[in-house]
């Protein structure tokens, strides 16, 4: 193992990994996150803490990581390129590691236009590709972004990145995934999969190039609460595709929430059986964390392996 990450151990064991997402609140109490961590602790290997997602100010991902770690859940600290320059990023990378964080997920971040501070400046001093490369370099070559030596106690993160098979240009998404792997990404979480056919085409290209053997890909799964939410996401969130059939199925359901859970379970089971090259599942139950245990259990992913 290159790091102390539990997620790395699970992925390297060859078993399906399970991660979830805990969104920090827009206030200064970590109690809700701890509550969600209690709920998830036996059902996931690690949980992402989002970094002011959709550019809305929330408890920081690192502070959130401390809260859930206290409850026994291994954090995956998300770090976007939107809000910090390379100095602040490295300060947070050192700080997060010193607080016991072992997984770092590098991403661009949603544009601030979508958040509650649309007049703010965006930074993008480095991009997600560069962040992946430089965090790996901190670990493997003990170098700051500038190339200066880290004399001792270098941060040794298990480095993750994201891939969006539903964004365009479609073919270049596989190229860009490969570029992220070349830059040093060790695990990949995909955008929420609703268009299974497109995801399968994406994975086919991934396998043709052997990328699945060089990186652990976790398929992004999001249970939907209502047909309106599904339609909204498909129409209004750039880089998301929600097929009409899925919206229709939710619309026709007697109990749409139950149907949403069933659909998520079906998706995971389908991928487990049919889509080679997927090494785990990232269950993003947005503001609906309490359904994760049932989904994990009914997909035969419970109990989680003990790798310690």
């Amino acid at each position: 193992m290159k790091t102390e990450s539990k997620l790395e151990k699970v992925l390297n064991s060859g078993k399906f990994a399970v991660t979830a997402e805990i969104g920090p609140p827009k206030h200064a109490s970590g109690d809700g996150m701890k509550h969600h961590a209690d709920m998830l602790v036996d059902y996931v290997d690690a949980a992402n803490i989002t970094d002011s997602q959709t550019a809305i100010v929330r408890i920081s991902s690192i502070a959130g990581g401390v809260h859930i770690k206290e409850k026994g859940v291994e954090p995956i600290v998300q770090m976007t390129c939107r809000d910090r320059n390379r100095i602040a990023m490295q300060a947070d990378i050192l700080g997060a590691y010193s607080l016991g964080m072992r997984n770092l997920l590098c991403l661009s971040g949603d544009h601030q236009k979508f958040g509650n501070h649309p007049t703010s400046k965006n930074v993008y001093d480095v991009d997600s590709m560069q962040l992946i490369h430089l965090v790996r370099r901190m670990r493997d070559e003990k170098l700051f972004f500038s190339g200066e030596e880290i004399k001792e106690n270098e941060p040794r993160f298990f480095v993750g990145a994201v891939a969006n098979p539903f964004a365009d240009p479609f073919e270049f998404r596989v190229d860009r995934l490969e570029k992220k792997v070349e830059a040093g990404a060790e695990f990949i979480q995909t955008q929420c999969i609703f268009d299974m056919e497109r995801f399968e085409r994406f994975m086919e290209m991934v396998r043709e190039r052997g990328i699945d053997e060089r990186v652990h890909i976790l398929a992004g799964i999001t249970p939907m609460k209502s047909w309106r939410a599904a339609k909204y996401i498909g129409n209004n969130v750039s880089g998301m595709i929600v097929p009409d059939a899925l919206v229709q199925r939710l619309k026709n359901a007697e109990d749409p929430k139950r149907e949403g859970i069933e659909m998520a379970i079906e998706q995971i089971n389908y991928i487990k059986e049919n889509v080679k090259g997927v090494h785990g599942f990232h269950v993003m139950a947005i503001a609906w964390e309490e359904v994760v245990p049932e989904i994990v259990e009914r997909c035969g992913l419970y109990p989680r392996p003990n790798v310690d």
């Binding site: 390129c81 939107r82 991403l107 661009s108 949603d110 544009h111 236009k113 979508f114 965006n122 993008y124 991009d127 997600s128 590709m129 560069q130 994201v162 891939a163 969006n164 539903f166 964004a167 365009d168 240009p169 270049f172 860009r176 570029k179 955008q191 750039s238 880089g239 998301m240």
Partner: peptide, 29 residues
Amino acid sequence: CSKSILNGPCGGSQYGKCEISKDMDCAWQ
């Protein structure tokens, strides 16, 4: 590019447009 990304495109590029507006071309597309 709305994010000045050098290794693009980001995940918000769809149908040739930028995530911040359907009227804006994605530079990386």
